[in-house]
């Protein structure tokens, strides 16, 4: 096991040399990139990376350019997890056989996928990788929508959001189903480490990434990725919208260790009403009408209940 990079504070962290390059094609203000930076900069170890088809992938490896300073692979939409698992298996084989070119270096294996690639189309592949116990980290860039293809709903899209395949209209308030609880599902795999992170809470996030890198076995990171294009807010507001998400507890920050021990890692000093979070985004604009306003109250009730549940889980340590 290699040494964990020492990051005492943000000034320390800012001495990191990014291994992700600019002039990629992500939208101005895209949180994906902020998340990728916080993941990659959390370690000085070598990295072997994979990405599922999605915004991150199509914006960072468009021939003849790559934005990756570590080895990186993309196959398809559903199999970023399996791609990195295959590379990890090869690493183990070559280590056993004494054929690694740099045997003294221990790379980290990380796969990135959007929520479409994670919650939906790639779910089976991720489950397989986690059940098999590959030594890898899977990072879901959760922007709650198929952003790369123009804003279709995924099973991460929350109730009431207007997506292009669940548009709000005269008789519809948009998405009808609640977001899938990937954190619980991945924890149920018995993974050594599962955590929800948000890039605006960088210290919490980087600490979790480092814990994940230190764990033996498959690690799942659900990273909230505020999407300027599909959530419909101005690009400069990515961090302030993210703050609303974490401080309203719409995206509570917590970790689950060994499938059971749940720890809440961020408790907002002032919990913000969910209404403020919803109101800041165009995708929820239609909720602020007489016929739909009851959904905002339902949102608040649901978020309160989830927070209550997380706290009870934490207390119970089960």
């Amino acid at each position: 096991m290699s040494e964990i990079k020492k990051i005492k504070n943000l000034k320390d962290f800012s001495t990191s040399a990014d291994r992700f390059e600019g002039a990629n094609l992500l939208c101005p203000g895209c949180a994906h990139s902020i998340i990728v930076r916080e993941v990659l900069n959390a370690t000085n170890d070598d990295l072997i990376l994979a990405a599922s088809t999605g915004c991150l992938e199509v914006c960072t490896a468009v021939y003849p350019y790559t934005s990756w300073d570590a080895s990186w692979i993309h196959i398809g939409f559903e199999n970023g997890s399996s791609a990195v698992a295959g590379a990890e298996a090869m690493y183990k084989a070559l280590k056993t056989k004494g054929r690694l070119k740099q045997p003294d270096r221990t790379p980290k294996f990380v796969a990135f996928g959007g929520d479409g690639a994670t919650y939906d189309i790639g779910f089976q592949w991720i489950s397989g990788c986690f059940e098999r116990g590959h030594n890898m980290m899977y990072v879901c860039l959760d922007n709650e929508v198929y952003a790369n293809t123009g804003g279709q709903r995924s099973s991460s899209t929350p109730i009431g959001a207007s997506a292009t395949t669940t548009p709000a209209g005269r008789i519809s308030y948009g998405e009808k189903r609640n977001k899938k609880d990937m954190m619980a599902i991945m924890a149920a795999h018995g993974a050594p480490y599962v955590a929800q992170v948000a890039p605006n809470k960088w210290k919490d996030m980087v600490a979790k990434i480092q814990k994940g890198f230190a764990a033996e076995g498959p690690v799942y990171i659900n990273a909230m990725s505020a999407c300027t294009t599909e959530w419909k807010f101005a690009p400069e507001d990515t961090i302030s919208i993210s703050d609303l998400a974490t401080d309203s507890l719409v995206f509570p920050l917590y970790e689950i260790i060994d499938g059971t021990q749940l720890n809440i890692t961020y408790r907002p000093k002032n919990i913000i009403p969910v209404r403020d979070y919803l109101g800041a985004q165009g995708r929820f604009k239609h909720l602020f009408t007489k016929q739909n306003e009851y959904l905002i109250d339902e949102w608040q009730t649901r978020i309160d209940a989830k927070w209550e549940y997380l706290q009870r889980r934490e207390e119970a340590s089960v």
Binding site: I48, A50, I73, I75, G76, E78, N79, S82, A83, V84, A85, G86, A87, E88, A89, M90, Y91, K92, A93, L94, T96, K97, R99, Q124, W125, S127, G128, E131, R132
Partner: peptide, 28 residues
């Protein structure tokens, strides 16, 4: 056999792993 043997969850996963492994650099 001292290579790795990965029993995947599907054939698609199997070939996906094979591709990742082959790109990593070894006999697959």
């Amino acid at each position: 056999v001292d290579g790795e043997f990965v029993m995947t969850e599907s054939e698609h996963g199997a070939m996906s792993c094979c591709i990742g492994a082959a790109a990593a650099g070894g006999r697959v």
